[in-house]
Simulated assay, not measured.
Amino acid sequence: MIRATNLVKKFGDSTAVDNLSFDVHQGEIFAFLGPNGAGKTTTIKMLTTLLQPTSGTVELDGLDPAQHPNDARKRFGIVFQDPSLDADLTAIENMELHGMLYHMPRELRISRTEMLMKTFELWDRRDSQVKTFSGGMKRRLEIARGLLHTPKILFLDEPTLGLDPQSRNQLWSHIQKLNETEKITVFLTTHYMDEADRVAHRIAIIDHGRIVAEGTSQEIKTRTATDSLEAAFLALTGNTIRDEKADSNAQLRDMAKMFRR
Rank of each mutant, 00 (worst) to 15 (best):
G215V: 10
H174W: 11
R202C: 05
G209C: 11
I205D: 02
A196H: 06
F187R: 02
Q218Y: 01
I211V: 15
I175A: 04
A196E: 01
M193H: 03
V186D: 00
I203P: 03
L178Y: 11
K183L: 10
R202N: 10
G215A: 12
A200L: 08
T181V: 14
I211A: 06
R168V: 12
L188N: 06
T190G: 12
Y192G: 02
E214P: 00
Q170R: 15
H174G: 01
I175W: 02
E180G: 01
S217Q: 03
A213S: 14
T189W: 07
N179C: 06
L178M: 14
G209S: 11
V212E: 07
I184E: 02
T181S: 15
T189F: 04
D194V: 13
G209V: 01
N169H: 08
T190N: 10
H174P: 02
K183I: 11
D197W: 05
I184L: 07
A204P: 08
L178A: 10
V212D: 11
Q176K: 14
R168E: 01
A213I: 11
A213E: 11
K177F: 14
T185H: 00
T189C: 09
D197Q: 13
L178N: 07
S173Q: 15
D207M: 12
R168A: 06
F187V: 07
H208V: 10
A213M: 08
Q218H: 10
F187H: 04
L178P: 01
V212G: 13
E180A: 13
D207K: 10
T189V: 00
I203E: 08
F187M: 12
H191D: 05
E214M: 13
E180C: 02
T216G: 10
E182L: 14
R202Y: 09
L188P: 05
R198S: 09
E195D: 08
R210G: 04
K177V: 05
A200R: 04
G209F: 00
V186T: 08
H191P: 01
M193F: 03
Q176M: 15
D207C: 13
T190M: 12
H191R: 10
I203H: 06
S217D: 07
G215P: 09
A200G: 09
N179W: 10
K183S: 13
L178H: 06
W172D: 08
I175P: 02
T185Q: 01
T181A: 11
V186P: 00
I184K: 02
Y192R: 07
T216P: 02
M193A: 03
E195Q: 11
H208N: 15
E214R: 06
N169W: 01
I211L: 15
I211M: 12
E195G: 04
D194P: 00
R202H: 14
A213W: 06
T181Q: 14
S217W: 04
D197L: 03
A204W: 08
Y192F: 14
Y192C: 00
D207W: 12
V199E: 04
I205S: 02
T216K: 05
A196K: 06
G215L: 13
A200W: 06
T185Y: 01
I211E: 02
H191V: 00
L171D: 00
I203M: 07
A213F: 11
G215N: 10
